[in-house]
């Protein structure tokens, strides 16, 4: 068990190193993301009053989650399909690592690289919001901004969100040998989970035919609940310990289920 964990760690670290240091496409995306987040400052020109910080927070979160998620899906799908098709994976599988260790190591390496990007982007966004509040550019008195605990929870849920997305990518990857199919399908499922009203929100009750469809999608799609969470963290503050544990567990169960299905499918496909 410890040996297996060590091998997964070695593959994850090498994947992380490869992506962060040598993947030019990844570096370009990171640069683009930072430009987009910095671009949020253009919103300060608008006459938004005390609602400006919340808008900055919402838009910033949207940019970070959508960009990081899209890059993660494309990166993982491309890396894994390329390494499987090129035969590089054979050098690892004979007398070195098991198929599961290899795939989990790649998934963790890809995920951590994007989590680092999100950490940087969150830092920049927090700085922008704090600077705007400090400069007292917003008329109407004291400006409420998220505290350190709210920012930490935001980062935690963004990371969990990306982990579920990475697991979903691994699972969809088993359905095709090409890069395009898993990338497009995963992005489509993800966006459906993000934007279909009520799909990610178990507290909303649905009625009628549309409600039944939404209920069905709730069962099928992983929980991508960033939007409602962003509002919750802003208006009501950090989640309680119980709420936090519950949300983490739900996300981890999704990850374990998706990775388990993915590994079983890879075995069936005789990778």
């Amino acid at each position: 068990m410890i040996d297996s964990a060590k091998r997964i760690l070695v593959i994850a670290l090498e994947t992380l190193r490869e992506i962060v240091i040598y993947n030019r496409w990844f570096q370009l995306c990171l640069f683009g993301l930072l430009i987009f987040v910095l671009g949020c400052q253009t919103l300060t020109e608008l006459p938004l009053g005390s609602s400006l910080p919340k808008l900055l927070f919402d838009v910033g979160q949207g940019i970070i989650v959508l960009t990081a998620g899209t890059v993660l899906v494309i990166l993982l799908a491309f890396q894994l399909t390329t390494e499987i098709q090129s035969g590089l994976i054979y050098s690892y599988l004979v007398s070195r690592v098991s198929r599961s260790e290899y795939l989990i190591g790649k998934l963790i390496g890809g995920w951590v690289s994007l989590v680092l990007v999100v950490l940087v982007a969150d830092g920049v966004l927090a700085a922008i919001i704090e600077v705007q509040a400090f400069k007292n550019l917003i008329p109407g008195g004291e400006v409420l901004t998220p505290g350190i605990w709210e920012w930490l929870q935001t980062f935690l849920f963004q990371s969990l969100h990306l982990l579920v997305l990475a697991s979903l990518t691994l699972c969809i990857l088993t359905l095709s040998n090409s890069f395009l199919f898993p990338a497009v399908t995963t992005l489509a499922i993800w966006l459906a989970g993000l934007f279909l009203v009520g799909v990610g929100d178990f507290d909303n009750s649905a009625t009628g035919f549309a409600g039944a469809i939404v209920d069905l999608l709730r069962l099928v799609l992983p929980r991508f609940e960033m939007w409602s969470l962003v509002d919750r963290l802003w208006y009501e503050g950090a989640l309680t310990f119980i709420e936090l544990i519950k949300s983490i567990l739900i996300n981890l169960i999704y990850c374990i289920f998706l990775v388990g299905v993915g590994l079983a499918m890879f075995k069936h496909k005789e990778l």
């Binding site: 090129s86 035969g87 590089l88 054979y90 050098s91 004979v94 007398s95």
Partner: peptide, 9 residues
């Protein structure tokens, strides 16, 4: 076992 694949990459 050691393995040398057909098209090493």
């Amino acid at each position: 076992l050691g393995y040398l694949p057909e098209r090493p990459s």
